[in-house]
């Protein structure tokens, strides 16, 4: 059964349609990459999937369950769908460790000692255990973004949404974040990734979706999209990003 599914989703800001008839299915342990020009609706799509934005029509399903059911509590849904942002959005008033602990403690209500040992294990995995007591502003952008990824993993989500997580980084720091995402993909993490890193998308994606002006114009395997795009719009976009 699919982990996350969007069915004919429509989203407007005022009169301006931002997503039009968007459908996608993400199976467990798969990685889907969303590509498209800036303003094409990638961030909006991810926010709708996480119920951070209400949708105007269509449906979002988690493990086959419709999330437009009024009995569904969005807070419970978001514990299962984690999100990582372009600008990290670490909490500046909390230490690295407390950033990672915030969700487990105050959304899941787990006790500190137990959650803490797990958080330290996660930080050790990205080589930042020794920085657990530091505040985020002491860390490089690459380190901050890796902490942000670990912060979402601490929730043990069913799916991870990543919104251009390397776009705000100094080029020299992009590699360490992409390497972490590659590791996660290899370990079978289900992910929906909006990205401008085409080489990375080709490596990790099981499916690539090209979005233009809120419409999924073309979708397929990385080989289909990058080597043999069918739509003129996809070809034009890929030519521009080369």
């Amino acid at each position: 059964m699919s982990v996350l599914e969007l069915r004919h989703v429509e989203k407007r800001f005022g009169e301006h349609p931002v997503l039009r008839d968007v459908s996608l299915t993400l199976e467990a342990h798969r990685v889907a990459c969303l590509i498209g020009a800036s303003g094409s609706g990638k961030s909006t799509l991810l926010r709708c999937a996480n119920l951070l934005e209400p949708i105007d029509a269509g449906d979002v399903l988690l493990h086959g369950q419709s999330l437009s059911d009024p009995r569904v509590d969005p807070n419970l849904v978001r514990r299962e769908i984690a999100m990582v942002f372009q600008s990290f959005n670490l909490f500046p008033h909390l230490s690295v460790l407390d950033n990672v602990l915030l969700g487990p403690r105050y959304a899941l209500g787990r006790d500190r000692a137990e959650a803490e040992s797990e958080a330290r294990t996660l930080l050790a995995r990205i080589g930042l255990e020794s920085r657990a007591g530091d505040y985020p502003d002491r860390l490089s952008g690459g380190q901050q973004q890796r902490v942000a990824i670990v912060r979402s993993l601490a929730m043990r989500p069913s799916v991870l949404l990543l919104d251009e997580v390397t776009s705000a980084l100094d080029p020299t720091l992009v590699g360490e974040v992409l390497d972490l995402l590659r590791d996660l993909a290899t370990a079978g993490t289900t992910m929906l990734i909006a990205t401008h890193e085409m080489a990375f998308a080709r490596d990790v994606a099981s499916e690539v979706l090209f979005l233009e002006e809120g419409v999924i114009v073309e979708r397929g395997t990385p080989a289909q999209i990058f080597d043999d795009p069918q739509e003129p719009a996809t070809r034009a976009f890929l030519r521009r990003t080369e």
Binding site: L52, N75, M83, F85, N89, F91, L102, R151, M155
Partner: peptide
Amino acid sequence: VPHGQILAARSLGLTYAATMRRVVLPQAVR
């Protein structure tokens, strides 16, 4: 307090009240 802070807290599944208490108010008061 930047809106991204609220988005980050809500996407962790924190309720509005928990987001206020743990994320927004500590930064606002400072």
